[in-house]
Computed example of a mutant assay.
Amino acid sequence: MDCDTGIDDALALLYLCSQPHVDLMAVTSTPGNVDADQVAANNLALLQLCGRGDVPVAIGARAPLEIPLVTTPETHGPQGIGYAHLPRARRTPEAGDAVDLWIEQARARPGELTALITAPLTNFALALRAEPRLPELLAGVVIMGGAYYYQGNTTPTAEWNTHVDPHAAAEVFAAFAGRPEDRLPVVCALETTERIEMHPEHLAALAEAAGCAEPELVLPEQAEGTRSGASNQLVRTVSDMLRFYFEFHRHYDQGYVAHVHDYFAASVAAGTARYSTRSAAVHVETAAPRLLGTTVADYRGLWGEPASAQIVSDNRPAEAFDELVRSLGALARRVG
């Protein structure tokens, strides 16, 4: 998993840790929602919370390929995890570079690994530069990013991850163009990830599934910044993260909800989500200032270019939240 943790990245990482069939080989840290060092600190602390101190965490790039880094504390909080406070991890990041780790793992286990990227595509682009055979070495690639004929969440036309590093995104899609359909990255874009809309009742259900002593009530009428008193630490962490995210969405007139984009991408990578895709050639705008990071999909072949992605066209939100509550609730019971 490559992430820029981030509230929804954190939820995605916790979900992967809750899946017994998922062998999490490494977590690499890309700057985006916060800087790379804070991303790595978040990843180490979350893995420690889940009892997964065996999973390597590495830092790769510290800035986008060609443009300055822009972070988003207003969306995810100064540390990237909302109101949550996690104990400092006992470990530190790996000494080696994340890109080298990607390549070593892929070469050591050809055809076995799925890459999940819920961050700007900086590290993946650098890995593809260093090892152009990655599309053949990896079993699959799942990307959260882009918006196709759909309103952006950063500019009127651009999604956050792609807007942070559009040049990296353009390189990644170019590297996959013309490959067999089953080798193309599966792209979870805003038109389907914004359907994965979390509500306070989902947190209440999670606390119940975790066996918490009291109901977990995160309500719009409560004071902003109210902290969870849940008897389970994992539930407290998730609740404190999500309250910040609910408040952010309300500030932008979207209601007291949270679009947990990266959890959906994680469920696709883990094979637990049902979804449909459409193949398309993807263009990422890297020149026009107002359209920077805009993604366009040619589903009809009008450009005469080969497909470079499988874009998710349909998903099942109710199933997604049933799965999240069940799986995270079981993890919370295990780790306390």
Rank of each mutant, 00 (worst) to 15 (best):
E194F: 09
E191R: 14
L121A: 13
E136I: 03
P180M: 00
R195P: 11
T155P: 09
A119T: 11
T157R: 14
A189Q: 05
M144Q: 07
A130G: 05
L121I: 05
V141N: 01
Y148T: 07
M198F: 13
T154E: 06
A174N: 08
L184W: 01
D182L: 00
L203G: 05
P166W: 03
D182A: 03
A175T: 14
L184F: 00
G146M: 09
L206P: 08
A204D: 12
A158I: 15
P156N: 13
G178R: 07
P120V: 12
P135W: 08
D165C: 05
P180C: 00
P185L: 11
M198V: 10
M198E: 09
V186W: 00
G140R: 06
L190R: 13
L206N: 12
T122P: 04
L126I: 01
R195N: 13
T193S: 09
A170V: 10
A119H: 08
G152L: 11
R183K: 09
G178S: 01
V141K: 06
G211R: 08
R129K: 03
N161C: 11
A119K: 12
P132R: 03
H163L: 06
A174G: 08
Y149I: 04
G152E: 14
D182Y: 00
T193G: 06
R129E: 07
